[in-house]
Amino acid sequence: MHISDGVLPLSVTIGGYAASAALTAWSARRTRTEEMPKLAVMTAAFFVASLISLPLGPTSVHLLIPGLTGALLGPSAFLSIGLGLLLQSLLFQFGGLTALGANALMMGLPAMACGWFFQRFKGTTRRRQTIVGSLAGAAGTVLSAIVLAVLLATGGEDFFGVAKLALAAHVPVIVIEGAVSGLTIGFLAKVKPALLQR
């Protein structure tokens, strides 16, 4: 779920732009210049991954995978997510022009936190990496939902109802995100462990 235009108060949209610009700059400094083309190509892969939908009972959900992005890209994840959001506006996907900064915070902050968490606790065995990966994936979704609800709630008391609903809508996704992130990391640990070293 991304925020569209016209929802957030002006001060929050501008603040979101400023904060995400600063974080993107930090993230870019942590990425070596010659690695940036590689990061761009990896971003494309993550973008395609986020287009995959999974059935959930009668409806289907799209994966957001902030946790997985953070785990695989480390500090570069924020740059990658900002890039992904720009791509979304190019490709008729969701996401508003004025809400770009806020959306980058919503996806990027959890990705950074989960990336750190995964690298800190991943250990060496595949089993442990799978478990820590699924925790990171689930935590990424929880954090995204919380940031989203907080951003919506900045609109004032009138927006509390919508914020609560947005929070509740993420609950069923948490399990799926956690499971898919963990299993993906388990697969990578078996097939290409180099991708998990950061």
């Binding site: 999974l54 898919v180 697969f187 097939v191």
Partner: peptide, 30 residues
């Protein structure tokens, strides 16, 4: 696709394979 663990595992392998292929391609592109 169904709402079950088999689907989740298959999709996770799918994603993992996508990342592996993409990463190898990334190196070649660069």
């Amino acid at each position: 696709k169904r709402t079950d663990l088999v689907t989740l595992r298959a999709v996770a392998n799918f994603l993992g394979m996508l990342f592996v292929r993409s990463f190898e391609r990334t190196e070649r592109v660069f």
